[in-house]
């Protein structure tokens, strides 16, 4: 069995009286795409927040590559190889596409306390940024201001930023949301190609995409993991059908 990349142990989180993460334990192996599905408001994004460090859990542990990271800041986790994308696109709108990606390259290569040399001319940063853009098929838009990219292109840019971090684990929060059929197909192909190099925790509502990509699937409902298993196990699971798949897969 491949190395355990991510392990969640008994995570709990509530907002006031609302329990959004209810004793969640999960694991993810190197080279695996583990999909996390569940109805709106199930607590998927909140879980990603706790893994990436945006939110602290009330209790429980996040173990990444064998080390406890529960108390580390988001930036430290990012530098250790935990990259995330956001459900609501989060890019630096005032930067060009390539500068958004180069920022991520810069974060892992050398000190950023350099004050005089114009960063725009650093060939190695730009070169690596360009590679990441090419990987998601956005190289022709490198110079475009991020603000003018189409919605689908912004999703691609988010993915390029995450790849440029050279992470070990990708946390992707609905990468396909709002993309057109053609763009979605392209993104699914890209994600499939990434499998070998990264572990991927994929949140997605697009069921055909999930069943095309995932090695394992966990189903979250009201903050609880109600099932984890292979595609076939999940398809066959009566509780899951009731709670979630029922209408969509029928």
């Amino acid at each position: 069995m491949a190395e355990l990349l991510l392990e969640l142990r008994n995570l709990r989180k509530s907002f006031g009286g609302l329990v959004v993460t209810d004793d969640v334990s999960l694991d993810l192996r190197q080279g695996e795409i583990h999909a996390l599905i569940g109805p709106n408001g199930a607590g998927k994004t909140t879980l990603i927040h706790q893994i990436s460090g945006t939110l602290a859990p009330d209790s429980g542990h996040v173990i990444f590559a064998g080390e406890e990271v529960t108390r580390l800041s988001m930036a430290r986790r990012a530098r250790r190889g935990l990259a995330r994308s956001f459900q609501i696109t989060s890019i630096v709108a005032g930067f060009s596409a390539i500068e958004n990606v180069a920022l991520a390259v810069q974060a892992r290569s050398g000190s950023s306390f350099r004050f005089f040399r114009p960063v725009g001319t650093e060939a190695s940063l730009n070169g690596q940024a360009m590679e990441a853009l090419a990987e998601v098929g956005l190289e022709h838009r490198a110079a475009a201001p991020a603000a003018v990219l189409s919605h689908g292109e912004k999703r691609q840019l988010e993915l390029a930023i995450a790849l440029a971090m050279q992470p070990r684990l990708l946390l992707l929060d609905e990468p396909l949301v709002g993309t057109g059929a053609e763009e979605a197909e392209r993104l699914i192909r890209i994600l499939g190609g990434l499998r070998a190099r990264y572990g991927i925790l994929l949140i997605e509502h697009d069921m055909p995409a999930v069943f095309a990509l995932a090695d394992r699937i966990s189903v979250l409902a009201q903050g609880r993991v109600i099932a984890t298993g292979t595609k076939d196990e999940i398809r066959a699971n009566p509780i899951v059908r009731d709670a979630y798949l029922g209408e969509e897969e029928a």
């Binding site: 989060s90 630096v92 709108a93 974060a107």
Partner: peptide, 10 residues
């Protein structure tokens, strides 16, 4: 411009 983004890349 986008503090969360900056944190997210490290």
């Amino acid at each position: 411009e986008n503090e969360t983004r900056a944190r997210a890349v490290g």
